[in-house]
Nucleic acid binder design. Structure first.
Length: 421
DNA sequence: TCTGGGGTCCTAGGACCC
DNA sequence: TCTGGGGTCCTAGGACCC
């Protein structure tokens, strides 16, 4: 059996931990640049707000109802996630972290010693007591069914945080009541296709004969069908190292000069290189894209992207940034108002790096050490304290807007809460 | 005026090899 | 006039996830 633990309205729940007065009140967390709503509490949903709403379009609802608004603070959410996941890892040996607010736990063998439902209820209670984050738990023979269970647990308080699907009767009942487009692995396209084939519920899909499923779907669809029938086949082995790393941002304002574009790209390149070193990998390619504002039909539009392959896979900030700057020279066009840029690292290798007889970069080891020194300085004294001059100052116009950001309560000594008794 | 960011896997088709 | 058979690798685009 698998358990999945899913935090409820995760970003909002974290904000509530540090703003206890918000219990029972509507709150939303915004995307980067305070652009759209990415997380909201049930109270905010009840006011007619939705995930994905641009803030400026719903501002009147927000103001009229005194909805609490937070800018996104991924450092804070990541730090809290680690705490939550550590608690479950103390209770279950093998876990797979799936996202910032979700983790799968392998309960093989637990049923001979424990009542699984009560065991997981204990874990959920500890998480709530120790972190104040509410989680919903699904327990089932497959991950897809477990995810369904966690959603039932979230929506119906009667489950007391844990919904277990451990018999065929429960499975069929769940499949009958669950929304087809909420099934894990069924996106918009598959949903429309299933509807056009006359399938209206997960149960109707699960009950289709295998021959029918193979005729209409390829591997992903077949896997979902099997999982709904209780045969595990979705493999989510824990991802510790990324195969590609991206840093991209929309700008607070549109920018036009090549110096500004270069500053943004250099800053994103440094951030990519930092993430790369954090997982002890090297990248074989770097790509850069530039992008105008596609919401502005009155302005000329532009998108371009180009890549560079390194002679030897690298994790050196200077080498990666230099290559990215050369790409900007190649794809920058004057006269465009740029809204977004991004840097992507690909062909990532771990461990052994293929050497090159004609490597133009001397002292590779020293260069990597230099980059690592930057990392430790910035770790100690704050992000971007030491950086390349081409990244520009700390208050560039293109920097994101973030007007309601919570302090880094869990990762910055300056930001730790003071409690007065 | 204001509209997010970061990933993975799968498939089909082209180009190439012998 | 007749024009094979069996592979691999790469890439772009689609679909999905949070």
């Amino acid at each position: 059996m698998w358990a999945v633990l899913d935090a409820n309205s995760y970003f909002c729940s974290v904000e509530k931990v540090f703003h206890p007065g918000l219990a029972g009140k509507p709150a939303v967390v915004l995307s980067s640049n305070d652009g759209i709503i990415v997380a909201l509490t049930p109270e905010a949903k009840a006011l007619g707000l939705h995930r994905g709403d641009p803030l400026f379009k719903v501002r009147s609802i927000v103001e009229r109802n005194h909805v609490n608004v937070f800018s996104t603070n991924m450092m804070l959410y990541a730090a809290m996630s680690k705490r939550v996941q550590n608690i479950i890892r103390q209770s279950v040996d093998y876990c797979e972290s799936y996202s910032i607010d979700e983790i799968f736990a392998d309960l093989s063998g637990f049923d001979s010693h424990f009542n699984l439902e009560e065991y997981m209820r204990g874990v959920a209670l500890r998480i709530k007591l120790w972190t104040d984050i509410p989680v919903s738990v699904g327990v089932a023979p497959t991950k897809t069914l477990a995810k369904m269970g966690s959603k039932f647990a979230k929506n119906f308080p009667g489950y007391r945080s844990v919904c277990m699907i451990d018999s065929d009767a429960k499975r069929r009942k769940a499949l009958e009541l669950f929304e087809l487009d909420d099934v894990w692995g069924v996106g918009r396209r598959t949903y429309e296709k299933l509807l056009s084939l006359g399938v209206r519920t997960p149960l109707e899909f699960a009950d289709k004969p295998g021959e029918w499923v193979h005729r209409h779907f390829t591997k992903p669809g077949v896997q979902t069908w099997k999982e709904l029938n209780g045969y595990p086949c979705v493999d989510t082995a824990e991802v510790l190292k990324r195969q590609s790393i991206t840093t991209s941002r929309s700008f607070g304002q549109m920018i036009t000069t090549i110096e500004q574009v270069k500053a943004s790209v250099a800053s994103f390149a440094a951030s990519c290189a930092n993430k790369l070193r954090a997982q002890a990998s090297s990248a074989g390619t770097v790509s850069v894209f530039l992008c105008s504002n596609f919401f502005r039909e009155d302005l000329p539009q532009y998108f371009n992207m180009a890549s560079y392959s390194f002679p030897v896979a690298t994790a050196d900030t200077i080498e990666i940034t230099r290559a990215a700057m050369a790409i900007v020279d190649e794809i920058y066009r004057p006269g465009i108002k740029y809204k977004k840029s991004g840097v992507l690292l690909g062909d990532i290798v771990n461990g052994g790096v293929q050497q090159n007889l004609f490597d133009p970069v001397p002292n590779r080891k020293d260069r990597l050490e230099l980059s690592k020194t930057l990392d430790s300085l910035n770790q100690k004294f704050g992000l971007k304290t030491v950086r390349l001059a081409v990244e520009g100052g700390k208050t560039e116009e293109w920097k994101v807007k973030s007007e309601h950001r919570s302090p880094n309560y869990l990762t910055s000594l300056d930001d730790i809460l003071t409690v007065q008794i």
